[in-house]
Design a protein around this nucleic acid. Sequence first.
DNA 1: GGGTTAGTTAGCTGTCAAGTTATATAATGT
DNA 2: ACATTATATAACTTGACAGCTAACTAACCC
Lengths: 115, 115
Amino acid sequence: MPLTEERLNATFTALADPTRRAIVGRLARGDATVNELAAPFAMTLPGISKHLKVLERCGLISRSRHAQFRPCHLERAALDAALEWIEEHRRVWDKRFDKLDAHLRDIQTDQRGGR
Amino acid sequence: MPLTEERLNATFTALADPTRRAIVGRLARGDATVNELAAPFAMTLPGISKHLKVLERCGLISRSRHAQFRPCHLERAALDAALEWIEEHRRVWDKRFDKLDAHLRDIQTDQRGGR
DNA sequence: GGGTTAGTTAGCTGTCAAGTTATATAATGT
DNA sequence: ACATTATATAACTTGACAGCTAACTAACCC
């Protein structure tokens, strides 16, 4: 999965589901097996398995294997990518208001200086 | 639209589409009319109109009216809500490693002190 | 009022995603 | 070899969503 648009699509799609957000929340506190992750939810295991695949496809989690277990691990980098997108656009937004402020100061200065 | 799970679902869903992200990107630089927003895309106006409705439903944009125009305005607060969710889980994650570091320091200390 | 510009609503189609049950794989324990 | 535990895959149903075209509303201008 490249770092492109595609990936942002997949990451935000993954975060759009409350079950998957809860799974991410759980994994932030430490790795866990599929059954552990499934426990809190009123959902069949295949359902959880699908959600995990979605999270894996966008790079939000990775899975290793340990005997019959496939412990899931949160990948912080993918979370950062989504964060980065939002922050960038907030910066653009903020810059706009900085300019506006500057403009208002200019007007003020003109009024004091001129006339 | 309350500030709940529902809203996060809607916000992340909205951000999962590249057209909508581009629209948000455009609006970060300043308000714009529907036609202005549509211009860069190879898509019909009704398509754009739908995307705008999605963005509006989750509170990411608001619309006023000015003659025949319905200028769109980015609502920073909604963007912040999504950001906040991600940041919170990164904090949990980071705390985990702080603990791990502390633990490793403890071991180190024990080894130097003990025996 | 008639035409033009700006935008929305309705109805359709194709695709994709979420959940299910039933079945399969893979490693463990006896 | 056999049963158990942990997880994945397959096949299916249902519901949401992206895109289209066609038709509508609303404000403006002459």
